[in-house]
Design a protein around this nucleic acid. Structure first.
Lengths: 336, 336
DNA sequence: AGAGACTGCAAAAGCGTTTTTGCAGTCTCT
DNA sequence: AGAGACTGCAAAAACGCTTTTGCAGTCTCT
């Protein structure tokens, strides 16, 4: 049995109150007593019980974080999807949390309300949720603050803080860039539009096309997005009577899949087909040609979300909508 | 204030003992009482306090996990390094933990002992640690079990469970493959050899070279490994009087960097230079040419580590050394 | 019919902290 | 010298559960 505060008090010849005060730097304690207690604690190797402390302070300095829990290609659950974007959001959140001595808890992907409630967390960050996650159930969000990245479109209750990019504008940025480079018939490949980022991008695309009198051409692929599904979607687009001359994808992996399939079909990129990804990533720079993408500052997204959540926990308030800017990184795949 | 067990007891007209027993399925309770309590709990929206429960059970069903906490290229701390390997280990651990209702806590990268002790975890998984991490301090590992992936070479205390690949054999597998394909002067590029996987690979390489009477040529690059550092290391190797005809790297990112630099130097791969990575990854299949790698089953590594840790926590015992097999995935970068 | 087993529930003892309150004793001032 | 402020510490009340123990009352036997 590890030593308790009582053992330290006995060893130092003081009350447990005094021990607590010394170790937490509270109260008025004489220099002499302070030294005695500190020494006794060190000699016993005393470490305050986290559980007892958390019970009384009602804080755990832990944030739950759930990344759009897709199922990966091998049908294995991926708590952290294999995507630079989520990884960067996670790292941004981790960095911000770390600075204020918070930890990040990856909750089981398939956990229901009861299982979620078994974890001691002060709040949760939901990255690109749909809104049907158990975190939105009253039993969870009544007591603990929630921050989302992207809007939870199916959420039954309002969320106090939403961190988001203006992805409608991002779509326009990319499409204008394609038009500037002489592409006349951009098509779009998207994943499941039940998440707001995909919905926004599609909305941006259809709006833009509408203004120009173009017929919007959108191929939606099934979850989970696979290389085969992407190839098949590209095939559907290319088989149309009026064949698109550029493809705009909602994620980096789709863009990589499109490039791969284009190469297989001996389509020249960027000559015969332009490719642009709505989410930039380091991996888009390692291809040849390198792929154009919209950089959405994922690290900042994660960081702002974590910071807002901690503010909500500690101060009870935070900015309710945080918009992170986007930037187009033009590369070879759209330069003809 | 959320309802407590006392509120439920009052509403159902029973003692708190009975409420606890009903909700946890313990003890002998009549069907009628059971229903009354269940209804009262549901009506009040009662959720047992995690903190109180954890205090008395002394369990949090949470595992700390720390991934070789390097610093990434931009000098930002990366709790989850941008590498398929770590991501897969993490997902493997998450999946295994999820199955048994455990969560995974990413602890602050720079946390000292006191800050680590502020988190309620039942044990920790250290992925490729060096041994100087605060988890190895007596104040931590005395009370809680520890499992490592790879051997913590500088650890002050023995670790109850180590999950590892036979990377000496992995190196030989790759080198034999290179020799079979006609490469005669393989060189090696490695990261920091203070982690056991790099040390083992280097040992495997020098042993293999010694047996064949070859002079081992090893370039070690500084932490953190960058594209520039890799390019520079490759340059050093190529400038030697006897120029290597193949490069064996300790990680996927090094291999990608080598391929990139080789292309820049107009070196033909695999013709003039063979490339093999000691750690396979999905990204090695997206390059052209695709890169040969040794698949080390990272998902299984993470899964076995988490399972062993949970066994240690619940049963107090687990297999002490777990070896995960390796497999060579030969691809275009070594096929001449 | 009486002994023993069984049933259904409550009382109470923790679990190990934090924090408020209170109380002697000592200082400082007029 | 006496009032008031200040100092250094302890007592005790939470925090909200789990779990052991005990105790009536009811059954089941011989």
């Amino acid at each position: 049995m590890p030593p308790t505060i009582r053992d330290v008090a006995a060893a130092a010849g003081v009350s447990i109150t005094t021990v607590s005060h010394v170790l937490s730097g509270q109260g008025r304690i004489s220099e002499d007593t302070r030294r005695r207690v500190t020494r006794a604690a060190a000699e016993l190797g005393y470490q305050a019980s986290v559980h007892a402390r958390q019970l009384v302070t009602r804080r755990s300095r832990t944030l739950a974080i759930q990344l759009a829990n897709s199922v990966d290609a091998s049908n294995a659950c991926a708590l952290v999807p294999n995507s630079d974007y989520f990884l960067e959001v996670l790292n941004g959140a981790a960095e911000a949390a770390s600075k204020r001595s918070y930890g990040l808890l990856l909750t089981p992907a398939d956990a229901d309300l009861d299982r979620l409630n078994a974890f001691a967390v002060d709040g949760a960050i939901l990255v690109d949720p749909r809104g049907d996650e158990p975190f939105f159930a009253t039993g969870w969000c009544r007591d603990r603050p929630l921050v989302t990245t992207g809007r939870a479109m199916a959420a039954p209750c309002p969320v106090p803080v939403v961190v988001d990019n203006d992805l409608v504008a991002a779509a326009r940025l990319m499409l204008d860039h394609l038009a500037d480079n002489g592409y006349e018939r951009p098509a779009m490949i998207t994943t499941d539009t039940s998440r707001s980022y995909a919905a926004d991008l599609v909305a941006g695309y259809t709006g833009w096309a509408g203004e120009r009198g173009l017929e919007p051409v959108v191929a939606e692929i099934d979850e989970p997005p696979t290389a085969e599904g992407t190839a098949e979607a590209l095939g559907r687009l290319l088989d149309r009577p009026v064949c698109p001359d550029a493809v705009f994808t909602t994620s980096e992996n789709l863009a990589l899949g499109v490039l791969h399939e284009a190469r297989r079909r001996r389509l020249e990129v960027p000559g015969e087909l332009g490719i642009g990804s709505a989410v930039d990533s380091g991996s888009l720079q390692l291809t040849s040609p390198q792929i154009t993408g919209v950089f959405v500052h994922p690290r900042e997204v994660g960081g702002r979300a974590a910071t807002a959540l901690m503010d909500l926990i500690e101060a009870g308030a935070a900015e309710s909508r945080i918009e992170v800017p986007v930037r187009l990184n033009a590369r070879e795949s759209t330069a003809r």
